Simulated scan of single mutants.
Amino acid sequence: MKHSLKIALTAGFLLTSCAPLQIYYKEGETVARMDRDQTTCEVAALRQVPADIRSRYIPPVYDRYRICHANGYCRWHSRLISPGRFESYDANAPLRGKVADQCMADQGYVKARIKRCDASTTRATPMRATQVLPPLTAKSCAIRFRSGRWQIVTPGDG
């Protein structure tokens, strides 16, 4: 694997591991049921709002800078910051996301953002993935595992 790809993957992992956990939440529901409901809603949304893949051209980005010589003569130069490129995107993705969100809301779920647990809470917590969505409070936080699973913790609760 190329060095730059390794760096990008590592940076992506670190960013997602530091970001809040975003899930569909319904107190008392099992995580397995929530996952099934989410998959069902995403498949239904894809049927209702199919992919519309489009391409766009992103122009190159240059940085202009000036070099001046001892004799007072100055010249402007350009440095390529980002080359021009074509990019593909799904024009229907935002609408499809709304349809999936509505489907989950119709089943009683709300979107929840749960902050990441601090290091001391993580160290003090026996690690086991959440199986049933617990009650949430302002103290609730989430621990992410490398497997992609997570644990919701409410410090101070026994």
Rank of each mutant, 00 (worst) to 15 (best):
V49W: 03
I53L: 15
F86G: 10
Y65V: 06
E29G: 00
N92Q: 09
E42A: 15
D37N: 12
R64S: 11
P60W: 02
D35E: 14
K26C: 01
C41F: 02
N92G: 00
P94A: 03
D63N: 11
R75W: 04
L15C: 00
R56I: 04
M34S: 13
C103L: 08
P83D: 12
Y57I: 08
K98I: 08
T40V: 09
R66M: 12
I81F: 03
Q38F: 07
H69I: 02
S17Y: 09
Y62Q: 09
F86M: 12
S55D: 05
I58Q: 13
G97F: 01
Y62M: 12
Q48Y: 03
I23N: 10
R47Q: 15
A100K: 14
R56Q: 14
S55E: 15
T30F: 14
C18V: 00
T30H: 12
I23L: 15
D101G: 11
Y57F: 13
H69W: 09
D37C: 07
L95H: 13
M34D: 04
A91N: 04
C103W: 08
G72M: 08
C103R: 09
Y25S: 04
A91H: 01
T39S: 15
Q22P: 10
Y57C: 07
A100T: 05
D63C: 03
T39R: 14
S17G: 08
G84Y: 01
S78Q: 11
P83L: 12
P50M: 06
V31I: 15
E27T: 08
S82Y: 02
R66F: 04
G97W: 07
I53H: 06
R96K: 11
R64I: 08
R36N: 09
R66Q: 14
A19Q: 02
A51N: 09
R56H: 13
R85C: 04
V61Q: 15
A32G: 03
D52Q: 12
T39Q: 15
V49L: 00
D52A: 13
P94V: 03
P50H: 01
Q48A: 15
F86C: 06
S78W: 03
S78Y: 04
H69Q: 15
P83I: 12
A44E: 15
R33A: 07
T40P: 06
Q102T: 10
V43A: 14
D52L: 09
A19V: 00
V31F: 06
Y62E: 05
E27G: 03
P83N: 13
V49S: 04
I23C: 10
P59L: 03
Y89N: 08
D37P: 02
R47P: 02
A70I: 10
A32T: 07
R36Y: 06
V99K: 09
R85I: 09
D37V: 03
L46T: 13
S55L: 07
A91V: 04
L95K: 14
R66H: 06
K26T: 02
H69E: 15
A100P: 00
C74S: 13
G97N: 14
Q38L: 15
R33V: 08
S88W: 06
R33P: 00
I58Y: 01
P20Y: 03
R66V: 10
Y25D: 05
V49Q: 13
P59Y: 04
R54W: 09
V61T: 11
P60V: 02
R56K: 14
S55V: 05
